[in-house]
Design a protein around this nucleic acid. Sequence first.
DNA 1: TCTTGTTTGTCACATAGCTGACAAATGACT
DNA 2: AGTCATTTGTCAGCTATGTGACAAACAAGA
Lengths: 225, 225
Amino acid sequence: MKSVKYWYLRNHTIFDALTDDDYEQLEWLVAFKTCTKHEFIYFSEDEVRKVYFVKRGNVKLGYYDDDGNEILLDVLKENDIFGQLSLEENNNKHGFAMAMGNDTVLCNFNVSEFEAMLKTRPTLAVNYSKQVGKQQMTVSRRYSSLLFKDARTRLVQFFKEWAEEEAKGVTKNIVLKNYLTQQEIAALNGLARQTTARILGELKEQNILDVRRREVLIPAIELLK
Amino acid sequence: MKSVKYWYLRNHTIFDALTDDDYEQLEWLVAFKTCTKHEFIYFSEDEVRKVYFVKRGNVKLGYYDDDGNEILLDVLKENDIFGQLSLEENNNKHGFAMAMGNDTVLCNFNVSEFEAMLKTRPTLAVNYSKQVGKQQMTVSRRYSSLLFKDARTRLVQFFKEWAEEEAKGVTKNIVLKNYLTQQEIAALNGLARQTTARILGELKEQNILDVRRREVLIPAIELLK
DNA sequence: TCTTGTTTGTCACATAGCTGACAAATGACT
DNA sequence: AGTCATTTGTCAGCTATGTGACAAACAAGA
């Protein structure tokens, strides 16, 4: 009878190709946590000395600027990694990570222990860098599109990528579960809330995209471009 | 008598802690290249199946948008890594990497060989993920500041970070070697060229920052904030 | 059902930064 | 020195987006 931990770990692509022995080792190092809605996973000056895996739910990363506004950097989903990814000092001064729903489950490792583990499991180390590299691509592509596109394009792109991830393969009548407020959508795309509202209204008029409180309806994905 | 390759590799933090035997192995896999100014290292649909290290000079990464504008994503310097960092398929469709000066020296590995190598050298794998993680931090911090700050702040920040990197420790009368045109500075900061010119003019008026063609003068770094 | 807080929709207004256009300054080549 | 291409400086609109303000719609709890 395998433990719950076992299955949580086993599910992550990073931990593919480990032997059962490896897993037993892993279980000694890993800590699990179920977070409540809006719970801070880390905050501000807390030094982040851990690597976190999102097992279930969503986590938002961001920071507070000098005027106290919440700036959202990213919303993570199942299997994403965050924390001290470089495994070294990082000066993420005013950053925070926050669980978005009640169902959020994380697991985490101490950086030093995680690093030690990687050093004895080359495949694991390679998988880890693959994952980090992949997330980097996503982030940098997302940001660059933000900088150079107008508001409408950004939003359309945003929902298109979301749809492509959540509803792989489906192209008609897509329904996404929505866990973001307009405020959050706006922040993620570097827009004012009001602008977002206006444009989402227009997109709804045009039957391209209907963003509701708890779901997002997309009649046909090819209209998003 | 060690080869040139040996020294180039040895210098990179990633290759710390390798034995001389390891180095001999490495040398079989690595390829070096000296690029001429404006030479494309890869371009567009070319599939990037390599991991590159910048050994000397600068490399710019970017892509061409639908209107044919050159969008700059990043300017890399010595010791930075680029290419297929995730070691897996990446759909960097219209992206390019270009050498900026004549002195640009790169080394590169085939992704598959590099991965195989990592799998037998755990420390190397860990160092590699550290480097990738570190670059990710830099990129995402840079972008996030772009999105939420005004033009002046972005530019000041840009030169401040540059100064802190090139002229570590120095705080007065800093002189940076400038290899960027206004056009490139603008693109890197998500601005129009004209806006950049206007603001750089103002900053010069105010004796805060003097950006010339081949050098950047900074009277006092604490003025940049 | 009523109450309260949060989220959304929609104004009117201000403005930072983009565009296009051109001339001046610089650098590279002959 | 003279020519040409590239880079920089500067102008006069224009427009997309941000701001502030408020009411309407919704959600959650008592």
